[in-house]
C-alpha cells in the first residue's frame, strides 16, 4: 500500500515543528528518516499515525485520508521510547493488542505465536513486561506493531537499546518485511540507514533537505568522481602534468610529492579510471593504487544539518 504525505505542517505557536513536508513511499520500499534531535522526525511520524492532529496537509493511504479512523488499521506503529503496559505479561499484552487491532478471534492465538517466533520472544513470553530487559521490551514493541500484519510499518527508532547481535537480527527482520510492506523508520544511526533502507530522507528544522538513495546523495554532495592514485614513475612532476592533460580529468594534484600520490578529480559526469590506466600502461609507469574516494554519509548529514 502506498502512503502519500501531502504538505504536512505542524505548528507550536509561531514555531513550525514540521514545515510543509511532502513525499510518497511505495510498497516494498524502506524509507530511512534521518535528522538531528528536534528536527521533526517524531512529530511527522505522530502525524502520519494520526496521534497528533494534523494542522495543515494530509496523509493519504490508498486514496483515503488517515483522518478516517478505520485507516489506522493499515498502520503498525512503534512509538519513540516504546511505551508498554508494564504490569501485563507479554502474552496478555499481545492478545490485547491483537483484539484492539481487530484481528479475527480464531486467528489471534496463531498470530501471537507467529509474532513470538518472529521476534524471538519465546523464552520471555510468560514474564511481565516490567521484568524484561530493554532489548526484549523493544521486541515486544515490534511484535505489537506487526500483530495485525499491517501494510504500512512506522517505526520510530526501532533499534535503540539493542545489542549488536539484536540490531543485526532486527535489521534483517525489517528488510524481510520491507519487501512486501511499506516501511518508514527513523534513526540517528547512520550506518543503519545504509544497511537497511532503500531510500534516505534527511530532515532539518521541519524541512526535507535531502531525499534519495545513499548513492544519489553521495553523488550530489560530491559533484564529480574523486580518485586517489599512486603511480611509480621516473619523474613525479611529469606524471602530474600528463594526468592534468587527460581529457576526462578536471584537476589533478599531489597528495604526497615524494611517494607519487595524487588526488584526481574527474570532469563532471565522466569516469577517469580507464584513461589513467592507459596513460600508465603507455608510459610504462606502475599504477600501484587506485582508490575511489567516497563522501561519508556522516559528512553529508553534517553538511546538510549544521548551519
Amino acid at each position: 500500500m502506498n502512503i502519500k504525505i501531502e504538505n504536512l505542517t505542524k505548528k507550536y505557536g509561531v514555531q513550525k515543528a514540521v514545515d510543509d513536508i511532502s513525499f510518497e513511499v511505495k510498497t516494498g520500499e524502506i524509507l530511512g528518516f534521518l535528522g538531528p534531535n528536534g528536527a521533526g522526525k517524531s512529530t511527522t511520524m505522530k502525524m502520519i499515525t494520526h496521534y497528533l492532529n494534523i494542522d495543515e496537509g494530509d496523509v493519504i493511504i490508498d486514496g483515503q485520508s488517515i483522518k478516517v479512523n478505520e485507516m489506522k488499521k493499515h498502520i503498525g506503529y512503534l512509538p519513540e521510547h516504546n511505551p508498554l503496559y508494564e504490569e501485563m505479561p507479554v502474552m496478555d499484552y499481545l492478545k490485547f493488542a491483537a483484539e484492539l487491532q481487530g484481528v479475527d478471534k480464531s486467528k489471534v492465538d496463531d498470530r501471537i505465536k507467529e509474532m513470538i517466533v518472529m521476534c524471538g520472544l519465546d523464552v520471555e513470553k510468560h514474564k511481565k513486561i516490567s521484568e524484561l530487559s530493554k532489548g526484549y521490551r523493544q521486541r515486544v514493541g515490534l511484535a505489537q506493531a506487526m500483530i495485525h500484519d499491517p501494510d504500512i510499518l512506522i517505526l520510530d527508532e526501532p533499534t535503540t537499546g539493542l545489542d549488536p547481535n539484536q540490531i543485526v537480527e532486527i535489521r534483517e527482520l525489517i528488510k524481510t518485511l520491507g519487501s512486501s510492506k511499506t516501511v518508514i523508520l527513523s534513526t540517528h544511526i547512520l550506518p543503519e540507514v545504509e544497511a537497511t533502507c532503500d531510500r534516505i530522507m534527511i530532515i532539518n528544522k521541519g524541512k526535507i533537505v535531502a531525499d534519495g538513495t545513499a548513492e544519489t546523495l553521495r553523488k550530489t554532495a560530491q559533484g564529480s568522481q574523486v580518485l586517489k592514485v599512486k603511480i611509480l614513475g621516473p619523474d613525479n612532476d611529469a606524471v602530474l602534468e600528463a594526468l592534468n592533460n587527460l581529457s576526462s580529468v578536471q584537476n589533478a594534484e599531489f597528495i604526497n610529492t615524494e611517494e607519487g600520490r595524487f588526488e584526481i578529480q574527474s570532469q563532471i559526469d565522466m569516469q577517469s579510471n580507464e584513461d589513467i590506466f592507459r596513460l600508465c600502461a603507455k608510459n610504462n609507469w606502475v599504477l600501484t593504487e587506485m582508490i575511489p574516494f567516497e563522501t561519508k554519509l556522516e559528512d553529508i548529514f553534517r553538511n546538510l544539518t549544521v548551519n
Partner: peptide, 14 residues
C-alpha cells in the same frame, strides 16, 4: 505519562 495512550489512539480506537 507512560505514553501508552499513543499506542491506544494510533490503533482503530477513537
Amino acid at each position: 505519562k507512560s505514553g501508552t495512550m499513543e499506542l491506544l489512539l494510533t490503533k482503530d480506537v477513537s
